[in-house]
Design a protein around this nucleic acid. Sequence first.
DNA 1: CGCTAATTGAGAACAATTAGCGATATTCGT
DNA 2: ACGAATATCGCTAATTGTTCTCAATTAGCG
Lengths: 167, 167
Amino acid sequence: MYSYDSTTFRSELNQLGLRMTPQRETILEVFRELPKGKHLSAEDLYHHLQEVAPERKISLSTIYRSLKLMTHLGLLRELELAEGHKHYELNQPHPHHHHHLVCVRCNRTIEFKSDSVLKVSMKTSGREGFHLLDCQLTIHGVCVEALKRGWPSVPQEWSCPHAPVDE
Amino acid sequence: MYSYDSTTFRSELNQLGLRMTPQRETILEVFRELPKGKHLSAEDLYHHLQEVAPERKISLSTIYRSLKLMTHLGLLRELELAEGHKHYELNQPHPHHHHHLVCVRCNRTIEFKSDSVLKVSMKTSGREGFHLLDCQLTIHGVCVEALKRGWPSVPQEWSCPHAPVDE
DNA sequence: CGCTAATTGAGAACAATTAGCGATATTCGT
DNA sequence: ACGAATATCGCTAATTGTTCTCAATTAGCG
């Protein structure tokens, strides 16, 4: 296992004068059991619990509070994948750390890994004297399916097409 | 000048059956004159106009509509810098294209450039058959000042510190 | 110039998130 | 274990950022 377990979570909370609660434990558990590549919004999590384990239902407020806390603690990663609301996933260390490619038309999301992005992030944060927490490369594009479907025309002058041509 | 001018904007609009309006022109102008490294939210833009050029005041609805349109057209870039609301800046082609390093405590934002991120993005989108629109690497960290000020402790097990150690 | 459809402004409507507040439950010292 | 101190919970109401509705206006084109 490569990410937080309940015990580590508890001691980290206690170090900060915070407490472990069944709710927090439940939320961590849900994220740990989430299939790879899935991420949940607050609502998603709320409904998921209601369906899968109604006896462990957690109020929306608590969910919001916990997601924020756990993100702040580095347990979770907050994703902004252009769907209007935030999504969360476990924040995993290196070999599992990944980024996202998103189709701006159909919202399809693909995960990918990149050591060079990690390196750039470490180098940059180091140079600026930052303590690195997380780095997310989000690529926006249009997938072939969406293009075929004749979605609104794609403009010509984008930033990335002007990227260096070598390599 | 490396980005859209009003004329290009107009013809692009017209090609799509849309119209150039004083409001849209004003908004483009504001962004073009914005100092490097600054980005505005919808509210920011609204108030900026009210102060700087009250006679050209634009309604909030129109601002939201225009920001969305211009982002969709590729003129603007939508930034999610963890401040709760979206910020916008001109979307600039290669040598000016950049990414952001953000302090999660004080919200200070530093821009930086990276060819390797561009390359990763082009390669990844190409491999998945995506038409590349924009790529943004956002690094979250804590700056030294914030650390010194004794902000809430920083957790130990982060994702990026586990990154490959070679170089 | 005049027609048609895109656009605007104002406010209402929305959806996601947060705050306030008693009631409850976890932690820690004993 | 027990009990005090206080973090946390769930509820509801409030806020925030953003979108929608619709009548009035205006850009684009012949």
